[in-house]
Design a protein around this nucleic acid. Sequence first.
RNA 1: GCGGCCGUCGUCUAGCCUGGACUAGGACGCCGGCCUCCCAAGCCGGCGAUCCCGGGUUCAAAUCCCGGCGGCCGCACCA
Length: 582
Amino acid sequence: MASMSKVGDIYEKLVDLGKRRGFFWPSYEIYGGVAGFIDLGPLGAILKRKIMEKWRKFFILRHQDIIVEIETPVINPSIVFEASGHVEHFTDPIVECTVCGRMFRADHLIEEKAKVKVEGLPPAEMSKIIVENDIKCPICSGKLGDVKLFNLLFKTTIGPYRGNVGYIRPEAAQGMFVSFKRVYETMRSKLPLGIAQIGRVARNEISPRQGMIRLREFTIMEFEFFFNPEKPGCPYVSEVADKKIRILTGEEKIKGGKPIEFTIQEALQEGVIVNEWLAYFMSLATELVSELGIPLEKQYFDEKLPHERAHYATQTFDQMVEVSRWGAVEVSGHAYRGTYDLHRHAVYSGQDLRAFEPYPNPKKVKVVEVVPDRERIKEVFGDKAEYIIRAIMLQKGEEVLKELREKGFIEVLETKVDKDLIKIVELEKTVSGNRFIPHVVEPSFGAERLVYVTLEHSYSVKGDRVVMRIPRDIAPISVAVFPLVSRDGIPEKAREIYESLKKVPLYVIYDESGSIGRRYARADEIGVPIAITVDYQTLKDNTVTLRNRDTWEQVRVHVDKVTKAVVDYIEKRVEFNELASY
RNA sequence: GCGGCCGUCGUCUAGCCUGGACUAGGACGCCGGCCUCCCAAGCCGGCGAUCCCGGGUUCAAAUCCCGGCGGCCGCACCA
């Protein structure tokens, strides 16, 4: 297909196409628009839905015995995001130069210039440090203003009381953690367990740009996969052992290197990916993105360095897809979240969010029990005491003991607790099983970004026309029906076929305006994979022409077989040329 | 948030510098009709822009000035 060629920067062409043909456009256009919001048009909405369905097939339907989908609210009471750490960590202290107006992260600036740790300090304290250390604007040396907090969470109130603060979720994940106990029970208390959700989230980005890549409100598709850290193996990993993925490892990134191709097996053996489940899901993510029409060499995983990672994660890979204008964009994140979230919710809610796995037979074992000294902890920590006591009690006794012996204190909730506040009791006990906080790996996908990269990698030009080569199983419109000419009973015949295809059901368009070539062109531009043309021969032998969007090849198929041919083709059960034998 | 460039029919654009002849022109697309036996053909007719919004200067503003909103690029930000 030498005449099929990719063009350079296609962002603007897609923006144009999106508006003209109804894939997407800026929201609130008639009021001048608001940055960071987009509407999906008739075609975009179908495309997104088909991509979501594909995601469901990959991650939920294929694993429906262990991964289930739920739906939880978009608006959350503030306690949820206090527990998750978002209220604290999703807030950036920023400082503006009074001369040139540039904005900086106050904490980064102070730590760099004054060499002091300022994490968690109130803004007024940071402002003081800036004045005391005479820190100036690193660009123009101008005077810096006061430190202010900027929080990316959208805030609202729940009900009529101003004090009852709610936030719109910036990720769906907390819904899964908060309802973990319930889902775990409905799934008959077994691990591993994945809890998935597709839903809207919002982040109040400071300055969103880049069309549908950086949005203030978007759809996230993610699941939290809970497992016993003592049994971290994934039984499916053998199925994907030889599958290839590309990773820009942290080590390689520091050296300024490029992504390296690994098989899943190699990535695990070499310790590049720390967990089998994480590796398995990364393999599926690669396959999913490939099925959106993005070749392997245009995707890679970017291992996040410690300072690039979110507050909850111990290992994170961003799945990147190369696009023409912005280099590579993140379409999914794969994080090892450990016990962070469940632990925090257990502490904040006072609920036991541990899993339990019975031993074959109850065992008599020596256990180390941790008994916090409630009175003294309350004296020392005041309001925080209750949370600290809960956090201590959630620790494994052996681990607390070890930490105390090594350091003389333990660290919980980013707080040091001295050894004389904790009593250790060793006793013999009959235990019937293991109680623990499950570990979590989280694959999380941005639906709109997947839509965008799909469109971008579908875009091709053939001669002077645009052909959107959207993979046929996710193309918004599956098939077009055209009468070759609009007389002699041909339109009537074509309409019959159109009506029967709609009932399949399929997304179908019927078009009899303009020349046949114009209609093919219109269909190509919105990525309709197959066109059916009713012509004079149809009147004689009841066969129609099927025309392939990508190659323009044509085959004749009997009218009675057309539905099956179309369905088989768009569901990728057969290739186009095999339709000739239908 | 800062700086640069930019904002005219559905889309792309002419006009803006040098204010008036602009009833804002064109191309493509779209709608209706004719024609048409397979790749944006042709013919006829039609719809479509208070020139992003608000204010100012002027006898007169798409055009000059100010503010806002939006877009792209750079800086910062993107847990």
